[in-house]
Design a protein around this nucleic acid. Structure first.
Length: 428
RNA sequence: GUGAAUGUAGCUCAGCCGGUAGAGCACCAGAUUGUGGCUCUGGGAGUCGCGGGUUCGAGUCCCGUCAUUCACCCCA
């Protein structure tokens, strides 16, 4: 196939019957956001590149090698958003949301873009749902955000998800810990893998998360961050855990959970599925108390998460959870003979005006073929429009399940079907 | 960015030591001309991912390329 005839690498088309599952998920997500009193924000898909450099952090993998950046005709540097927290914070400042009652609780849903090697559960254009609570530094806000995700997952029927929790402290205590860690690692530098020798330079905390045999051994002996958290961070983390514990949210402490974005402070968490292989993180997030200030605002705390829609769908599928698919048709209108096309089309419109989901054949096919089509669409009723009947101002109404047919006057079609559909509702 | 596997009809796949492509499902049509689900019969379909090489001849061997998948990396 010619290159231009296939979607770019790491992108794809989402079609029925999959798209109906997306609709369902999106509906449930909106329902839960409403329940938790979050309002939607729809930031632009691209932003000034500078926003991500400052917000996400110059040393992160996202900024260094995964951004889709380009210049527009006026030579502005723009970037397709790789995540939406930076945009949300920008919008918070630009729209002066700090002047509204705090905290501001927002959610977003939409495509993100990262130039990365595609893999199961990893795309270059992928969809995230995320929430942000800006203006609340209390541990309860951390707990609420985690609870929202956990609650939603439970509602969708997911079990056996792991909530991993850690605290990476504030700039003050992280600095102190970082110094200790660097000191320790410098004594074992020759034992680290090549990647970790690089991490030692720009993000030593990540060494703790390395999966290489040698690095793991060294990480085992590294000083524990927990011991270096300042009093405030320690107390904050303890309260987050207390809230979650009181609500019965199961979680596990994971000291090696670091996360790759620069803006995180204090609480970080991931929700992981074992059904996904290597890309097991469905949901990741944490607190970012320095980000608003970094973007030019007053010091303002924030906490949130992002959830990968494709990974969520994949986990649901691998867990054997069936999501609602394509809705069946209510009525199929079959026409017999070319002369009745006009009246058949009129009846179709009449049904639709009564909110009855209906369709007909458009290829001039045989009645037999039309019946097959009606069956395939799952229509419980078929209206047969024939010349003989039309001459007497009636049509035939066929109930597919039983094969029973009856003549119905033209003017009573919709009411008759609505009555029958109501009857079926009652039986459920 | 690194390593590996895969790439044949819409879908799932078969195709032996190289000899000019097959099955099932799906789709379409028919089985006394105005009726679905079962059955039967027939039909349309593929430049064997793309490009090059070896060979008398390549889906089958070699190289490149693109894509998918898996692992690394990273994260959603």
């Amino acid at each position: 196939m010619d290159l231009f005839m296939s979607a770019p690498r790491g992108t794809r088309d989402i079609l029925s019957p999959e798209v109906e599952k997306w609709h369902y998920l999106e509906d449930q997500i909106r329902k839960y956001c409403r329940l938790y009193a979050y309002s939607e924000i729809r930031p632009p898909i691209f932003e000034h590149t500078e926003l991500f450099l400052r917000g996400v952090g110059e040393t992160t993998d996202i900024v260094q090698k995964e951004m889709y950046s380009f210049q527009d005709r006026a030579e502005r540097w723009l970037t397709l958003r790789p995540e939406a927290t930076a945009s949300t914070v920008r919008a918070y400042l630009e729209n002066k949301l700090y002047a509204q009652p705090q905290p501001v609780k927002l959610y977003y849903m939409g495509p993100m873009f990262r130039y990365d090697r595609p893999q199961a559960g990893r795309y270059r254009q992928f969809y995230q749902f995320g929430v942000e609570v800006i203006g609340a530094g209390e541990p309860a806000a951390d707990a609420e955000v985690i609870l929202l995700a956990v609650h939603l997952f439970a509602h969708l029927g997911l079990k056996n998800l792991e909530v991993h929790l850690n605290s990476i402290g504030c700039p003050a205590c992280r600095g102190a810990y970082r110094a200790k860690l660097l000191d320790y690692l410098s004594q074992h530098i020759e034992g680290l893998c090549r990647d970790c020798q690089a991490r030692y330079q720009h993000n030593p905390l990540r060494v703790l998360d390395c999966k290489q045999e040698g690095c793991r051994g060294i990480a085992q002996g590294a000083p524990e961050f927990g011991a270096y958290l300042c009093a405030e961070c320690k107390e904050h983390f303890a309260q987050v855990q207390a809230y979650l514990g009181d609500l019965g949210v199961k979680y596990q402490l994971n000291p090696s959970l670091v996360r790759g974005l620069d803006y995180y402070t204090k609480t970080v968490f991931e929700i992981i599925s074992r059904e996904l292989g290597a890309q097991g993180t469905i949901c990741g997030g944490g607190r970012y108390d320095g980000l608003v200030e970094e973007c030019g605002g007053q010091p303002t705390p924030g906490v949130g998460f992002a959830l990968g829609m494709e990974r969520l769908l994949l986990t649901l599928e691998n867990s054997g959870i069936e999501l609602p698919g394509l809705e069946p048709l209510d009525v199929f209108v079959a026409s017999i003979g070319a002369g009745v096309q006009g009246p058949a089309f009129g009846i179709l419109y009449e049904l639709r005006r009564h909110s009855i989901r209906a369709d007909k054949d458009y290829l001039g096919r045989s009645l037999k073929a039309q019946m097959k089509q009606a069956h395939r669409y799952g229509a419980p009723f078929v209206i047969l429009v024939g010349e003989e009947e039309l001459a007497r101002d009636v049509v035939i109404l066929r109930e597919m399940a039983t094969g029973k047919q009856a003549e119905v006057p033209l003017g009573e079609i919709s009411q008759r079907i609505l009555a029958l559909m109501g009857g079926m509702e009652d039986e459920r």
